[in-house]
Design a protein around this nucleic acid. Structure first.
Lengths: 353, 353
DNA sequence: CTGAAAGCGCTTACAG
DNA sequence: CTGAAAGCGCTTACAG
């Protein structure tokens, strides 16, 4: 077995010192065009690839990475999970000298978000991980990052026109279609009613949830089945209010067969259904939060679509570090598969993601 | 930020040389009990953890790892995929000095399997990756490995009583249950007939497939629905024979609603169904082979359960290397999630695994 | 513009 | 039983 060529090998072959080889490798100038070409030729001849192990050992580089995400300490909250993935990735990179500047904000307070941005602005960061929730407020900060040449990765949802080095998330329209298809599998040809119920306050304006609903409707517009889909946003301040609003909606529909919850709160509907006698309605939702998992196991929720939030956090940090170490501009964005979870296969997903 | 303690720090603090520290770290003797204890104490005080980056750079260790798996060069064959994962893991570990001794055998010839075992026996291996297909023939080799203290990892299915350092695979009984549940979602209460069709010659005696069928039956034994499940093994030597056998079986059932294929050959049934007029039967199978994917997209196959074969190969090699580098005896086995794939979510699975 | 040296945190002979 | 030195493949000042 021919061992891989090292920087020494190519220095010898090109009749230069390893310092010079290093200069052309990282094209940091200070090299005459003639020797640059000579060295470059040898690099290609020998098909040299740097030993990243040695690289990271030698270059005691320190990375400061800001984490700008919603705070959560509850496993019944979506944003708990990306942070877990980030911690996991951080643990694996302890030897590159990683320093996380954690700026977790209150999802319900735009002021909290802005505070955290100010906080991060003062730090000398090499990169930032965030999610476009407060889009307008984020935009300014992103411009700032781009002007300072600070790399950033996005998770959950993308900003297409931005200069982010990496995006990881799920296709929301398609995930809505998947939910529709699963429900469609269970339907008979009797003009069923379907409800779409969501609970996330509009003020947050998370587009993901609307896009899921678009996908859901789109599917049934082209399906064989003749279904009636009606959509409701339910805002409430007490359990009583929630229940009475649900009561109202349920009495309005004739032939209710299925409920689609495009946000992560399907456990609210499950809780309501469990207390009713008629549970023979199909319920599909998103995210394997603790309570959703519980109702899925019980069979009250039939389908949960998971978006691997831990993996999203993990990949976001991992790829950001890669792009920092290897000085790559952009890394192709990663689509998270649309995992379908039922009471029978939850066992090998839960805890994993 | 306090930087992590190095071997030098603990040497200094314990008043010994770094050589001695290294000796107690890897307890390779040659150290008086007194100094061993002294060093050990400092290690614990400083909460020392070795820098694995530096470790792998310094210890130019070379690993020879045998790969004993069925040969395949077709994407329409299950065993094509684990090999892809193994190559992927190998590529990532190019700097630890990895040398794969690839012994891919003919799945249909036990002699070929035995030949490859002889071939591997002659090599000086550090580890082996294999799958228990020819169990009896494998047993002898495994004993041999255990006697020579050569580590091995298993994928696909496990040998519970063995000394394997790692296993990665899917729970076959549960995956059969998942297939049953998916079909159950589509059924109405009219005493439907369900067929289980499999195509893998019994002589290979792969237990996985039988266990999937067990799970499938088990589910319906306890389900509300009153279903009749009948199981058929179909062996054929020509397309004509296959078709006529299927014709026969199909005329025997009254109220056929669904077909379950517990092996990876559901495309055979799909091909048959596509040429029939009545396609309104639900078809569920395993593995995202190329032809299965095609029929899934067309809607002839409704559900495919994927077992992430690329990931299985990747993990098997990855973890074997970890156990070799870190000299761990055993690594907890890993259950592959039971991925449910439909025409709507295949897009983000295909190619990925 | 170029080279020689020191060092990253380990491991591995070698000497005593 | 213990220590000092060389080296893994790079990077990073420093000198010229």
């Amino acid at each position: 077995m021919q061992s891989k060529p090292s920087i020494k090998d190519i220095a010898k072959r090109a009749n230069v010192s390893i310092g010079t080889v290093d200069r052309v490798l990282h094209n940091r100038g200070q090299v005459s065009e003639a020797t640059r070409e000579k060295v470059q030729k040898v690099i290609e001849e020998l098909n040299y690839e740097p030993n990243i192990i040695a690289r990271s050992l030698a270059s005691k580089q320190d990375f400061n990475i800001g984490i700008l995400l919603p705070r959560s300490s509850s496993k019944n909250d979506y944003w708990y999970y990306p942070a877990v993935g980030i911690q996991k990735a951080a643990a694996e990179h302890q030897y590159v000298g990683l320093n996380l500047v954690e700026a977790y904000y209150d999802l319900n307070l735009v002021e909290s978000f802005q505070d955290k941005i100010s906080l991060l602005s003062e730090k000398d960061l090499d990169g930032v991980i965030t999610a476009p929730i407060y889009k307008n407020e984020l935009e300014d900060y992103i411009n700032q990052l781009e002007n300072s040449n600070i790399k950033y990765s996005l998770l959950d949802s993308d900003l297409e026109d931005s200069q982010r080095s990496f995006f990881v998330g799920q296709d929301p329209v398609q995930s809505g279609r998947v939910a529709a298809q699963l429900i469609d599998f269970t339907l008979q040809k009797d003009s069923p009613d379907i409800l779409t119920l969501h609970f996330n306050p509009v003020t947050q304006g998370i587009p993901t949830i609307n896009l899921r609903e678009d996908g859901f409707s789109e599917y049934f517009n082209h399906a064989d089945t003749e279904v009636k889909v009606s959509s409701h946003l339910i805002l409430y301040t007490s359990k009583e209010e929630l229940n009475s609003k649900l009561d109202q909606i349920f009495t309005d529909v004739q032939n209710l067969k299925a409920i689609f919850v495009p946000d992560s709160k399907s456990y609210l509907v499950a809780e309501y259904l469990e207390n009713k006698t008629a549970k023979d309605v199909v319920l599909a939702g998103f995210d394997l939060l603790e309570e959703n998992a519980t109702y899925l196991r019980k069979g009250v929720i039939d389908f949960i679509i998971n978006q691997q939030p831990i993996t999203q956090g993990y990949q976001a940090l991992n790829q950001l570090i890669n792009s920092l170490i290897q000085k790559k501009e952009k890394i192709p964005s990663q689509n998270i598969p649309i995992d379908i979870i039922t009471s029978e296969n939850i066992k090998y997903y839960d805890g994993l993601d």
